[in-house]
Structures are given as structure tokens and as C-alpha cells.
Write a protein that binds this DNA or RNA. Structure first.
Lengths: 256, 256
DNA sequence: CAGTGGTCTAGACCACGCG
DNA sequence: GCGTGGTCTAGACCACTGG
């Protein structure tokens, strides 16, 4: 657990109080990057505690305050969380995290609830042009593509299409059905942590197929959420297009 | 500019190194609240520089580091911004701020552009039940209500209804037409700063009237953005319902 | 040049969680 | 009691801005 990683050494790049000038990057950002790299490389796994401030400071040859600033920045990004008296931990995709960080559909009364899911089908295929572009793949790369319907209190409300790069998810969906909380599944089974997501929203008309699935009229207005989920290093890992019946639920956002 | 405000004194509540126990609130939060209060009371106005860290630390009897933490928290909330070598300034509603902080509609190519506006009408009225509820008003309070259409490159794209509590905006719209950038207008003319906004999104069908305004078919899907804008102290100041034609533009959000 | 914010350190004490 | 993170201080030097 305590192996030194020479590539991580700060001292090799810049001695404390030595050159006095030409600092490429602030120390705390170097520390931030080192920790970030270890998270990406799964040196510290989700749910685990990482070394204490004092230990990191000693290992990296910086002061405790510098480590603290780096850690607090990572906490602000939701990559870590800290508990006084206990330690600093790597964030994991719990139900709660999924609900408040990555799921924005709430009831008219403001109640937050994760919908249940039913998978309709799941195929492996060559990426379409659109899929390759959105997921930043080469033209002939393969993907897993599946459709599902999501239910609030047994009422079909969301129809979605999800595409994953097969490269990162070998054997996905062929053995077991994809579970409801996908991000937790990606993390626990494939070691892939979704760190952020970019969403584009628009209003569309329900197709015949969607109307059937959701029990509404063809042409009814649906809220389209087009989302790219990204790993810790920013690379895309999932493209999801959700069509939501917003008569009893709506999407929420805060600005400012 | 340098008048002491006894109510702001931290030392009256808690002497440095004196009681040693029972700290109600961390010092830096007390400092944060004092500065926040001065922003709310317009002691320091948008665009102006506030006193330096050293001056604030001396006035409030805390260390520079404590002031710095409070200031950085306020910067993270976009209430202040800092420029090395110059000072710390109160944020104002520039075009840029409106565009990146409070306006989420972008073109298919990702281009950000503020649409032009045409006001259709503007009336003073007693608040409806819905308006009173959303703006947290008493049943008989008065409001200003107006409709406008917004254009991207001369193409009508958004129809919106805006309601303001008359109490905060005396004479609004009776003398001059409301300008395109409303938040800047609220700030410069009424001294009201919009600090954050809560948005609810849904998909709806275009009414006959909207269809006419936007040059689309009745029943076409529109993206509804229902937004409450709030002042520095969190009280609602504007209720806006926008219906957007999202065939060439969409709403963007980042999560995580 | 003086003054501002930005980085970094060193060390103190507090509050919390666990054994 | 001990180790953790949380708060607070004091002081150093750096980097940027303006006159």
C-alpha cells in the first residue's frame, strides 16, 4: 500500500526553496494531479480511505496545507469525500450519489426517486457514424447498444437508448441483464468511474413505438435528454438518449 | 467608505484566544456572512473593489488567512471575483455573465448567443394564485406581467411570460420598454442582483397563439423552462416561463 | 516602486470517531 | 488516548498591476 512511485515524486521536478523561479505549476496542482492519476489508475479504489494528509505531505515532500488544498479541490469535484475523525475516502456510485449528482428528474412535488428499469433488448454492433462521433471512436469500433423503459411507481415514464464502447465493457449484457443503477455497475464490474456528464435537452414528439411503450398518444411532447457520461480522465464512456413523459415529472437544474 | 459598523464586529461575539470553547460558527463563516450582508445592503456596489484582505483582516480582528477563505468561498459562488495585483470586486451582470451563468440555450454547433427580444405587452395586476405561490407573495400583492418573443438571427425561437413583484420594481415598464438583458437592468436601475435561479424543464405542446408567434404548427413540441430567479438573500424576484423551439437550439447542462 | 492577490510553510488548538 | 480532518494564525516569498 505504501510503495513509492518514482514517477510521482515532486522533488525530482522541483526542489523546495531551490530554484526560486520558473515554477511551471503550483505545488498544490501537482499534488492534485498525482492524486487524480492514482484515482484513474485505481491505486486507491472507490470506498477506500486514502492516506492521511500528514502521510501524503511526508511522501510528497510538501506541507500539510498544500496537500489539504489539493484534497479540498478534489472534494469540490466530488471525487473524494472527507469525514472528520475518520479520513479521506474515494467517492463511489451509491444510490444517493446517482440520485443527487446524475439524475435530474423529480416528481411534481419535488420528490426524488430512482425509477425501476426494464431492458428491452441488447445487441453488439459496429458503431454508427453518430455513435462514433459522440463516443470519440474510430469508424469500425464496436459498441453495445440497448433500449430500456423506466417506471415511476409502475408507470412507464422514460424510454431510453444507451450506447457503450465495447472496448471498455467486454461481455456486457450477454451474461446478465444490465441492472437499474448502471453507473454503480460500471464501477464495480468494469472499474470505470463516471465522473461527470454533459447533457443537451430538447423537446421532441413521441414516435409510434415510444407512444406504445409509454402509453401515450403518438406525437405527444417528450423531453429529450441527450447525455455523454465521462470517466475520470474525461473520455466518453456512455451515450444515452432519454425521452421522458413530463406530465407528472420534470427536470430540475440550478444556475448561478 | 471606511465607517465601522458595530453590528459587524466579530470581537463582540468572540474574542480571539479568549473563551477557548463553544464556538457557535467558524470565524471564516462569520466573516463570509458579514461580507455577504454588506453586498445585500449595497455597502459595496457591483463593479466596485472591496477592501483588501489586509484591511478586512485588521477591521474584523482576524488573520488574513481567515479573510481569504471567506473571500474564496464567495468567489466560488460568483458573488465576487479577484484579479491578482488589482483587488477583489463585486460581480455585476455583464453580457458575458448573463450568457454563461444564466442562459443555457445554445445553437446546434454549441455557439452561445444572446437572442434579441420584442416585448408584446406589459401590465400591472394582482398576483394570480400561482404567481403568489411561486414568488412567495401575499394573496393581494401586485405584480408586473409581460410577454415577449426572442429571436436568434431574426428567427422567433422563444416565447416567454415574465412576472415580477411590483413591490421591488416600482414603475416597471410604464416609462421605458424592458431591455433585452433584464438582469443587468434590475441591477443598475433597481439595485437588485440576481444571484441564482432554480429551473424546471418539461416538454409541452405549442398553443395556437405560440404557434403563430414562433411560426410553427399548433401542437409542436416546445421545451418549457420554468424559472425562479433569486436575490442575494434567496428571496424570489422573477418568475419566468419560457417556451423554446428546440429544432435548431438546445438547452445544455453539466452534471457531476 | 508599493500594493494587491496567489502560493507555501510551520505550528497551534479544536472536534470528532473509535478502541 | 490517539489519529483523523477542521479551523486559525503568523509570516515568508512570488506574480501581477498600476502609477
Amino acid at each position: 500500500m505504501d510503495q513509492k512511485t518514482p514517477a510521482d515524486e515532486i522533488t525530482s521536478r522541483r526542489r523546495r526553496r531551490a530554484p526560486k523561479k520558473m515554477r511551471a505549476q503550483p505545488l498544490y496542482q501537482q499534488v492534485d494531479n498525482i492524486i487524480r492519476r492514482r484515482l484513474i489508475e485505481n491505486v486507491w479504489k472507490p470506498g477506500e480511505a486514502i492516506p492521511s494528509e500528514m502521510q501524503l505531505a511526508a511522501e510528497l515532500n510538501v506541507s500539510q496545507g498544500t496537500v489539504r488544498k489539493a484534497l479540498n479541490d478534489l472534494v469540490a469535484e466530488n471525487l473524494l469525500y472527507r469525514r472528520q475523525g475518520l479520513g479521506t475516502f474515494v467517492s463511489e456510485h451509491t444510490e444517493r450519489r446517482a440520485l443527487f449528482l446524475f439524475f435530474s428528474i423529480v416528481g411534481s412535488d419535488g420528490a426524488r426517486l430512482l425509477p425501476e428499469s426494464r431492458v428491452l433488448n441488447c445487441v453488439e454492433d459496429v458503431a454508427t457514424k453518430a455513435e462514433a462521433e459522440r463516443l470519440e471512436l474510430e469508424p469500425d469500433d464496436e459498441v453495445v447498444r440497448f433500449h430500456r423503459v423506466r417506471f415511476f411507481n409502475d408507470i412507464a415514464t422514460i424510454a431510453e437508448t444507451i450506447t457503450l464502447p465495447l472496448e471498455h465493457f467486454p461481455g456486457f449484457g450477454t451474461e446478465v441483464d444490465p441492472p437499474n443503477n448502471l453507473f454503480r455497475f460500471y464501477q464495480s464490474v468494469y472499474g470505470i468511474t463516471v465522473a461527470k456528464a454533459d447533457e443537451q435537452l430538447a423537446a421532441v414528439s413521441a414516435s409510434e413505438e415510444e407512444a406504445l411503450l409509454l402509453g401515450i398518444d403518438t406525437g405527444s411532447p417528450l423531453l429529450e435528454i441527450d447525455r455523454i457520461a465521462r470517466m475520470l480522465d474525461g473520455r466518453p464512456v456512455e451515450w444515452r438518449v432519454s425521452h421522458c413523459d413530463t406530465r407528472n415529472y420534470h427536470y430540475v437544474a440550478e444556475r448561478g
